[in-house]
Amino acid sequence: MTQQGTLGIAVIGTGKMGADHVRRIDEVISGARVAAVVDIDETRAKAVADTAEGCRAFTDPAAAMDAPGVDAVLIASPGPAHEAALLSAFERDLPVLCEKPLTPDAASALRVLEAEQRLGHRRVQVGFMRRYDTEFMELKALLATGELGRPLMLHCRHRNASTHPYFTTEMLISDSVVHEMDQSRWLLEQEITTVTVLKPTPNSHAPEGLSDPQLVIFETSGGALVSVEMFATCGFGYQVQTEAVCERGTARVGDAHGMLVNRPGGWGGGIAPDFVARFAEAYDREVQAWVDATRRGEVEGPSAWDGYAAAAVCEAGLRAQKTGERTPVEMIERPAFYR
C-alpha cells in the first residue's frame, strides 16, 4: 500500500464508466487514490489522468499494473478486453474490481475461474452494483428473515429512455438483462436453470432492427419464476423495479418514492435519466466496500463464480432470443472454492 495505507488503484478503461470511477475514487471514496489510468486512446487517458493528482496515463494495462504505487486494479474497459486484464492481474496477484461482464462468454469466464483457483485465493469482485443499492439490500434482508415465507416469483421491470446507436437486440440480454440474472440469483439464492424470451410487436420508436421491448422468463433451481420486462426505448426515463411475490406477502423496490410535488393540474416526482444517476450511491457503496475489504486483505462481494454464472445464463438467453424456445442453462457444478 502507498500513502500510509492508501490503496493505489489502476483504472483500466476511461470511457463513461471508467471516468466516473476515477472521479468517484478521487472525490468520494476514502482510503484510495487513482495511481494510473489505462486506455488505448492515449489522448483520452491523459485527459482523465489529469483530473486526479499524481495519476499517470498508460495505453498498456500490464505497464500500468507494474507502475509504482499500484496495489489494485479496477477494470472498466469493454468486455472482450477483460480476460487478458484479469489474467495479467492474477500474474501479479493484484486484487480486482471488474465491471460486468466478467467476460463476454461462459468459456472465457471459465478460464478466469480456473486461473483464480490456481492462485489458491479469491482476487476478483465483479461489479454487479445492484447488490449495493439501498432498496435492493433491504429487499434481500427482508427475504432472508423468512417473514414473508418462500419467494415464489419475482416481477422485474428494466426500462431505458433510449439506446446508443450501436445497441443491438442481443445487447438487451447481454448488457441489460444480465443485471436481473445476477439480481435474481442473489435475492433467491438459487441458480437459473432455463430462459425463455418472448417478443411483442416492436416499439415504433425503437431504432430500425432493434426488437424492443422483450419479456424474459427465468426458471430457477428452487422452483421460482422470474419475469423481466426489458424495454430499452421507453422514452420517458430510467426505471429498475422488482417485486417479490412470497407465500405470505409481497415486497417491491424501485418505485423511487422521493419527493412528490403537487402542481396546478397534476402531481408527481422525477425519474432518473440513466443508470449512472439511478445507481450513483450504489456505485459509491460498491467501490468503498471493495477498497475497505482490499485494505483488510480480504475479497468480498460478487465473485468470479457469479460472473461465470451470469455469462452462462446470458448464453442461454441469447439462444432463447433467437429460437423463441425454452432454453436450458448449461454450466458446470459450482466449485467448492466458491462456496
Rank of each mutant, 00 (worst) to 15 (best):
D105E: 13
E138F: 13
L152P: 03
G146A: 06
R131K: 11
A144F: 06
L110P: 09
F136N: 03
G146Q: 07
M137Y: 00
L139R: 00
T145N: 12
E147Q: 11
E147I: 02
Y132N: 05
A107D: 14
L110W: 15
T134N: 14
L119Y: 05
A106L: 09
V112W: 07
R111F: 07
A106W: 03
L142P: 06
L110M: 14
E138D: 11
A141V: 00
R111C: 05
S108I: 06
G146V: 04
A144Q: 13
T145R: 13
L142S: 04
M137G: 07
G127T: 00
A144E: 15
E116H: 09
T134R: 15
E147F: 01
L143T: 03
R130V: 04
A115L: 07
L119R: 15
V124P: 11
R111I: 02
E138R: 15
G146E: 06
S108Y: 03
G149I: 03
R150E: 15
P151I: 01
L148V: 09
M129L: 13
P151N: 04
L110C: 13
T145V: 06
Y132P: 03
L119E: 10
D133M: 05
L152R: 15
G146P: 04
Q125K: 11
K140Y: 10
R123K: 15
E114K: 14
D105I: 07
E114G: 05
P151R: 00
A141N: 04
F136D: 02
R123L: 11
P104R: 00
R111V: 01
R122D: 02
V124T: 15
A106K: 12
G146W: 02
K140D: 03
K140Q: 04
L110H: 14
Q117H: 05
L143N: 01
L139G: 03
S108V: 06
L142K: 10
L113P: 04
M153D: 09
K140L: 01
R122E: 10
R111E: 04
L139C: 04
A115M: 08
R111Y: 07
V124A: 00
T134P: 01
E135K: 09
K140A: 08
P104K: 00
Q125V: 14
M153Q: 15
A109F: 05
L139K: 01
L148F: 13
A141P: 00
A144P: 01
R122H: 14
E147M: 05
E135T: 02
E138P: 01
L119S: 08
A106C: 12
L143D: 01
K140N: 05
T145D: 12
A106R: 12
L119W: 04
Q117S: 06
L152E: 15
R150H: 12
G146D: 08
R130L: 10
A115P: 01
L148R: 07
G127F: 07
M129Y: 13
A106H: 09
F136T: 00
E135Y: 07
M153K: 15
R130C: 04
T145M: 12
T134L: 12
E114T: 14
G149M: 02
L142D: 05
L113C: 12
R131S: 10
G120V: 11
F128N: 02
E147S: 10
V112Y: 08
L113V: 15
R130H: 10
E135M: 05
K140M: 00
E147L: 10
E114Y: 08
Q125C: 12
L113R: 03
L148P: 15
L142W: 03
T145F: 05
E138Q: 14
F128R: 09
A107R: 13
F136Q: 05
A109Q: 13
G149A: 02
E135N: 09
E138T: 10
